[in-house]
Design a protein around this nucleic acid. Structure first.
Lengths: 243, 243
DNA sequence: GCGACTTTGTTCCTGCGTTCACAAGCGGCT
DNA sequence: AGCCGCTTGTGAACGCAGGAACAAAGTCGC
């Protein structure tokens, strides 16, 4: 640990000038990061907030404020140096360090995620796979053999897994979650449509595909309401909405 | 329920009382819906806001406020009738009508989504699959043959697809998106890590798995700051943040 | 039948996040 | 070298969402 002046930054808090980064901004920063790396590949070395905001689909003022959480690394009258910005965003997001991933539940979705190139490409190598099914144990998926869920704690601890991805059916999810926590995993990405109960120091993000569709459905219905297509939302009493 | 001088009395639905359902509330309502259906399967007929909120992982006041957008269907002193609540949430979310889905890009992820039971189970039947790869055309995936992307507009229009799911690589995503829009699709769930450009009347929701991981990474780093594992967050420039 | 208890529905308030708008700063041009 | 125009960074206002608290309302016990 190449710590510098320990005395000056004794608390470890002042080490982080980004004291309060809004949750929403974190998500957007990750998006900026992707846009930026893509632009760098195309040889772009400088971008204005206006252009970057357009590519990321946000307001330019929002973008500038988000970037101000990272620090002031733009040049007025010119824009941002793409390479430098990437570097600083990666630092803020903790991507200077690789986070190894464990995928639990090697069904259709787990299979896909185990092979998802976007994970290793972004610095998240998949280093462990788990399932209950005896027929799957030992079978290599994406070059990595599947282990039994019972060995989650040991293997996660050994391989220093920092992120667990749960793709199991609902009934297994909570149990798997506890095994991951026992293995020292403090970050969980949960695809099972259930709210996991975890200790306070564990962060869970849920990705519920059906919920996404339902939100789309809601907007669809609201948009079509009264456009002449038909009464998509009917009054309450009529039996059912049959189109 | 009080009658407002606003004019129409509150029969609950007809007079567009969901003029203003907060975006965040829509997402939560979908979660409540899932919890409720699960509870109904277990024979639960009545739930208090406290219990339901706990299962959904939200504050009970927030839950009651969310439900008030749907209408007042609880009984004071008792709680909510689960079946009735499900019915009304489904109506609000537009789930009384089935939304057929097209999946574009039958790679690992597309394969998984085409077979994802959560979609049909929730009233979102997958009715069309598309890919570019000639070797895949005609091959049944989950009982449904894959068609060529060129036929997206025709087939989507014919089968009345309302939601398009994009699982293609980034370079193909925008083009596929436009084909879907040409086929009359107004709702898109995008798994490609790119911000799609669409007309105003098209709603896009993006699911970016790498972004989710990066958000987790951010929280992990902030939590573990100073745990001795390594220089997780390195000092910024000497002259970092001046104000 | 009546009182007490339980739970909803709503109102108010606080805090956060987003947007607007503008001053400060930097490069390019003459 | 100095001015001009462009872009950043930020202070202030606005709007929205979330949480606490409370009154209305309906049920259960006696």
């Amino acid at each position: 640990m190449t710590v510098h002046e320990h005395g000056r930054y004794s608390t470890g808090v002042e080490d982080l000038p980004y004291r309060s980064v809004p949750e929403a901004a974190v998500g957007r920063l990750a998006v900026y990061l992707r846009v930026l790396t893509s632009m760098i590949e195309q040889g772009v070395t400088t971008m204005s907030s206006e252009v970057l905001a357009g590519a990321a689909g946000v307001n330019s003022a929002t973008l500038r404020k988000d970037l101000s959480y990272v620090g002031s690394y733009g040049t007025r009258g010119v824009g941002y140096d793409t390479a430098r910005l990437v570097e600083h965003i990666e630092r803020l997001l903790g991507l200077t360090r690789h986070h190894s991933i464990a995928v639990v539940g090697i069904g259709n979705l787990g299979h896909a995620l185990a092979n998802y190139p976007g994970f290793p490409d972004r610095g998240f190598p998949v280093t462990a796979l788990f399932d209950l099914d005896e027929d799957l144990i030992g079978v290599p998926v994406g070059g990595l053999p599947v282990d039994h869920v019972d060995s989650i704690p040991a293997i996660c601890a050994e391989r220093e897994v920092t992120i667990g991805v749960i793709c199991t059916p609902v009934p297994a999810a909570q149990g798997v979650c506890e095994l991951l926590v026992a293995g020292g995993v403090r970050c969980i990405l949960n695809f099972a449509p259930i709210v996991l109960q975890v200790p306070d120091d564990v962060e869970v993000r849920r990705v519920d595909l059906a919920v996404e569709l339902q939100i789309l459905s809601f907007h669809q219905v609201r948009r079509c309401n009264g456009n002449g297509v038909g009464p998509v939302v009917e009054p309450i009493d009529p039996i059912a909405v049959s189109r």
